[in-house]
Design a binder for these strands. Structure first.
Lengths: 211, 211
DNA sequence: TGTACATCAGTGAACGCGCGTTCACTGATGTAC
DNA sequence: TGTACATCAGTGAACGCGCGTTCACTGATGTAC
């Protein structure tokens, strides 16, 4: 079960390539129109394939949507994993997190845009899948946060709530980065500064709260 | 130019009623499907009118969407005006705000849901109109906040930023209330408590920040 | 290696359907005298 | 008040179009011998 193109029988490899083309086509088109507004035929056209070929890969547009949710959260988790390895995290976790967030979103606008758009605007099935993944993600982030020096003494309820706030702000900031016109370094810096402030606020507020 | 049904010529009054029926139909249908997914014919059907009659009132679905944006922000502004008159505001502004927010959203799920959904998922025209209204709203709220005892000494930049955070959290909390199943008083209380905490956090954090 | 058959990803024609928009219309409401 | 005409909100038929889905198909890839 190789991940991509390693020594599969030619037929399976080609099928895999078409599947990727369909996913990429849908992701690309959904950036301007929103996934929920896409038609099966539009996606097939963009993927360079006849509409009926779509059914060899997905039962319906909803199923394709779920595959994109999965893809998007893989991207998101990779971002967190990379961030944890970044040595700057040990110097100043908040500055590093703001930096990583903005950079990762910039480089994966399609996936982050997909999540933030379809989280509220998508079909019921897709919307629910995203909410579920985000809930999971809040819990996963809570585990990471719980190990941090400033936070390790907090109650697990408080950590969960901070995690929820962080994720909520992450989503909001990702929305802003996605909407950001290209080449506006000033806007980018403002968003980063905003993200830093918000995180500091949350941590400061909670410390004082507890004391 | 009476607002509703007061002594207009019968024909105009009837036209106004049909217009309201179209707006109500679109708002209702958009709760399950999202406004961007609605067709003109669906809206006309739900409004009890033939598709061509739609054009007597709106040039296109986009124009109807803009009318709904306008309606929704009238609702939002009414909420803020009522909240300012509420005597509890002088006792504990944060608790009062959380209470008013949840109650107002509960009673206007359709409008708040419309804004939170179409803010990211709508057509470009509608999306931009909502962003513009929200920006205006941040500035308006900043004026209100600037007069509050705890805040009156802050710089206007800081007030603007706090206003932005409040509005962002308001939108997030409104989303949660809209998604809340009916009759779950426990969930409602949790959302309220969350909103109170977030507002306290923001204010506490900012106070400490400035000191 | 070569042959005969099986598999199956992608094709292309066809279908019925709801869509947005046009057009000429109808008949109740409004206006002038 | 009554009549003759104007206005115009809503009607209903018609159009061409893109849609999702079905079906029988093709031809390259895979397998058995």
């Amino acid at each position: 079960m190789g991940t991509s193109g390693d020594s599969l029988p030619a037929r399976q490899a080609q099928k895999e390539r078409t599947r990727e083309a369909i996913l990429a086509a849908a992701l690309e088109l959904s950036q301007s129109q929103g996934f929920a507004q896409l038609s099966l035929r539009q996606v097939a056209r963009q993927a360079g394939v006849v509409p009926t070929a779509f059914y060899r890969h997905f039962e319906s547009m909803d199923e394709l949507g779920l595959a994109l949710v999965e893809q998007s959260f893989l991207t998101l988790r990779r971002m967190i994993r990379d961030a944890q390895r970044d040595p700057n995290v040990f110097v100043n976790i908040i500055d590093a997190a703001a930096e990583v967030l903005v950079e990762a979103v910039k480089q994966n606008k399609a996936h982050f845009g997909f999540v933030s758009r379809e989280r509220v605007g998508g079909s019921p099935v897709v919307r629910q899948a995203i909410r579920h993944e985000l809930d999971l993600f809040v819990s996963e982030l809570a585990v990471v946060l719980a190990r941090l020096p400033n936070i390790e003494t907090w109650s697990s309820d408080d950590v969960q709530m901070v995690s929820r706030l962080f994720v909520r702000n992450m989503v909001s900031n990702a929305e802003e980065v996605v909407e950001m016109p290209d080449g506006r370094a000033d806007l980018e810096e403002r968003i980063k500064e905003g993200a830093r402030r918000q995180m500091r606020l949350i941590v400061l507020g909670f410390e004082r709260w507890e004391s």
